[in-house]
């Protein structure tokens, strides 16, 4: 093997390794939600516009999703109560987002409970993710 090739191969292997560090892509996470939403009668696909509206509105309680994740999810947010910095939600600027199913499920459960006093439906989650994935 040429000496030059070695660093290149190493770099490539590293790149592939880094990609594989995430269990799934946001697209795969969205596909999973689409499968669940398709079981509801009348499902016509997800909407980024609906997702944005859901994300930025309150639903009976003091907080909206945007209270902690900001009106612009491509920048860092701040926990409404503790002031701890929260990394951006849009996968385009934060590659870790929506790549770990258990983490996604855990936080949808908690945060929907805080904001809506109930779980979010697959349609609501899919709309929100579609909105977040539309941000560049």
């Amino acid at each position: 093997m040429l000496p030059l090739k070695t660093p290149l191969t190493m770099a490539l292997t590293l790149a592939i390794f880094t990609l594989n560090a995430y269990a799934q892509t946001p697209q795969e996470t969205l596909a999973g939600l689409r499968q669940q939403a398709a079981e509801t009668p009348g499902f016509q696909g997800f909407s980024a516009t609906r997702g944005e509206q859901f994300f930025k509105s309150t639903h009976g309680n003091d907080w909206s999703c945007a209270t902690c994740h900001t009106q612009n999810p491509t920048v860092s947010g701040k926990h409404a109560k503790t002031s701890k910095i929260i990394q951006p939600m849009a996968p385009a600027v934060n590659a870790e987002r929506f790549t770990d199913q258990a983490k996604v499920d855990k936080w949808f459960k908690r945060n929907c409970n805080d904001v809506l006093d109930r779980a979010c439906t697959p349609l609501e989650k899919g709309d929100v993710l579609t909105y977040l994935m539309s941000l560049k």
């Binding site: 109560k81 855990k106 459960k109 908690r110």
Partner: peptide, 12 residues
Amino acid sequence: LDKHFGTDASLD
């Protein structure tokens, strides 16, 4: 943990 200082912090 589901009622943790006014927030849901539930874990499995």
